[in-house]
């Protein structure tokens, strides 16, 4: 079993946001506050797990045997969109508290590139050999996303309080901070 390498790869050395530059939109958009960043991170993790759980078998047991592997992107978009729809309805019915805290983020991430990215990358990742590893990969890709977005949100909360020059205040400072974060995470991929 190569559980530890998968965890390390998904969270640190191949971090979805800071190394692969996927899901930049929520990364910069929902990172004003740590609370909302955490909510977004949990929602993304949830959908990533679900995505891997469903798209990995569909690819390996439906598309590949039929020789239709090139349909993967359109099929994945299709499946993920429906899944999020179903998930939203189920949450609304059974866990309304979670729905009201996470519900607004769910439709937002339906077509997010990080989600489609995890569905694609889990197929090419050499460490992943079965469904269990695929789900694990999805889970920790989400954890890596949450880590990055929560770290940036914490930095932004501090940056807002600093007496920065007017031309740097707000978004420019955020871009510079995320640049340094990406450089720091790049060190992990050198190990």
């Amino acid at each position: 079993m190569n559980i530890l390498p998968i965890i390390l790869a998904a969270v640190l050395s191949n971090n979805f946001v800071l190394i692969q530059f996927l899901g930049i939109c929520p990364f910069l958009g929902v990172s004003q506050k740590v609370d909302s960043a955490l909510g977004m991170g949990i929602a993304v993790t949830f959908v990533m797990v679900l995505t891997c759980l469903v798209t990995y078998p569909i690819y390996n047991y439906v598309l590949v045997p039929l020789g239709l592997a090139y349909l993967e992107i359109i099929v994945f978009i299709f499946v993920i969109a429906s899944l999020v729809q179903i998930l939203e309805m189920v949450l609304k019915k059974f866990i309304p508290a979670l729905y009201s805290s996470m519900g607004i983020y769910l439709p937002l991430i339906t077509t997010n590139c990080a989600i489609l990215g995890v569905a694609e990358l889990v197929l090419t990742e050499t460490l992943v050999t079965g469904l269990f590893e695929a789900v694990l990969y999805g889970l920790f890709a989400g954890v890596g996303f949450t880590l990055a977005i929560v770290l940036l949100a914490g930095l932004r909360e501090k940056l807002d309080k600093l007496p920065l020059a007017k031309c740097l205040k707000g978004f420019p400072a955020t871009m510079i901070a995320s640049c340094f974060m990406a450089m720091a995470f790049y060190a992990f991929s050198l190990i």
Binding site: V62, G67, L68, I74, V75, F78, V79, M89, K92
Partner: peptide, 29 residues
């Protein structure tokens, strides 16, 4: 191959549509 692709997509559309319909029926708030 065209027929196969269409069949796979249509099959998935029917299955997912049916699931959404059922979930919507049972989870109507």
């Amino acid at each position: 191959i065209v027929g196969l692709s269409v069949a796979v997509m249509a099959g998935m559309a029917v299955v997912l549509g049916a699931v959404i319909l059922l979930v919507n029926k049972f989870c109507h708030v």
